[in-house]
Write a protein that binds this DNA or RNA. Sequence first.
DNA 1: TGAAATGTTGGGGCG
DNA 2: ACGCCCCAACATTTC
Length: 479
Amino acid sequence: MASDQPVVIVWFRQDLRLTDNPALIAAAKDRQKILPLYILDDENSGQWKMGAASRWWLHNSLSDLNRRIDGHLCLAKGDALSILEDILRQKKVSAVYWNRCYEPWCIKRDTKIKSTLTDHGIRVKSFNGSLLCEPHLISKKDDTPYKVFTPFYQKGLSEHLPPPLPKPAPTQLKWCKHTIVSLKALNLLPDIKWYQSIKKIWTPGEQEAQKYLNSFLQQGLPDYKKGRDYPAKESTSRLSPYLHFGELSPFQIWHTVQKSMFVQRLETQGAHFLRELGWREFSYYLLYHFPDLPKKNMQPKFNHFPWRDNKRAIIRWQKGQTGYPVVDAGMRELWQTGYMHNRVRMITASFLVKNLLQHWHHGEKWFWDTLVDADLANNSASWQWVAGSGADAAPYFRIFNPVTQGQKFDTQGNYVRRYIPELAALPDKYLHCPWTAPEDVLKSSGVILDDNYPSPMVDLKTSRESALSAFAKIKTDSV
DNA sequence: TGAAATGTTGGGGCG
DNA sequence: ACGCCCCAACATTTC
């Protein structure tokens, strides 16, 4: 039966941190024992169960969080409401606090949980710990949601900036020990240890996130505006997985960058970086107001788009065997590290959707499973952006040329050579288009086309023309 | 947060 | 000296 001392549950979700965590701060104010809880809920997430790379990340994040609270983290697996109700039967619970999530399935589940627990006589409070500004607070003058990024960012969001200052971790917390299952029993790690190479690159955890942020401010930010386009450089922040799991809050990022902009005189660079945070906000905003975003084209005319369905082509793309070095390097970076540089994400996505004419859902699913930063809002909004089916999307006819893009943004070939060692000996001139290299150059570089590296799976000129004529077919379609 | 096609300009070679 | 052509370099338009 319920033990005598009442406890407050802090339900950790995508906020795996102790600093600037509103739910935790609220619990600390109650001065009761805190039961820190994480639930792996695969029963309510439907099609959007966490992908494999994310699970690896989560495993390590939970392990780190648990270590930081001296082994008190309570882990559970299953339907969140049932698990909470189980705990209520075993413990005297006065309140449950959490920071809000914005995935449609989460909103639906949490709404039900909130009303059910309230009926049980429990104090339930939820907070914003993940967004600069929550989606329901922003709308145009006519009360409809923004559909275009620039006005959303410049008018809608900016009215709510600056965000509140980040708050330190509460001190002298009294944890309550309660065990349901072990971390191992969550089965977050796969049987095959494909994550060995990911492990070399990444260290999940709140303190590591802070280190990453600080090193970005020193090394990445000063050259961010230009440098972020070059995948071989380290000018991007690579904060996305930490941000997704809430090991870092956007408030912390926003204020730290602002301060750095002032101290280092990096107004322009900083503004460009903060704009990327703005895109993240916009993705969440779109997902909130258009919950079909992960499934349905925002522009209905794309419902008639003549996608092809070629399983083997999709597999070649996934494996990085398209014959276009910058595309293949990107897909191999993804497979090996659980991450891909932003510019290369655009190039590989454009290739799948436009040159191969495969539905953006295929790319969305693959990225969902393989990215450590897989995030429903960012992933679906970005795929629709690339495909051209989004509300404020890249025009369909914007088709990236992987050879030109490679030559422009990986001129020295450092990125391609890192992920495609079999091409490493090719001279820069032919690195992004090996099939144009003379026989003797190929031979002396040890490249044998269709043997150790494929020749292009489609012709750029003709596939581009096919894409444009496919687009022409839906161009005139009415809503 | 393109690329390719088309248009324009201006310098240099050359009859 | 002049007109003509070529074409690179840049600008504009179209997809």
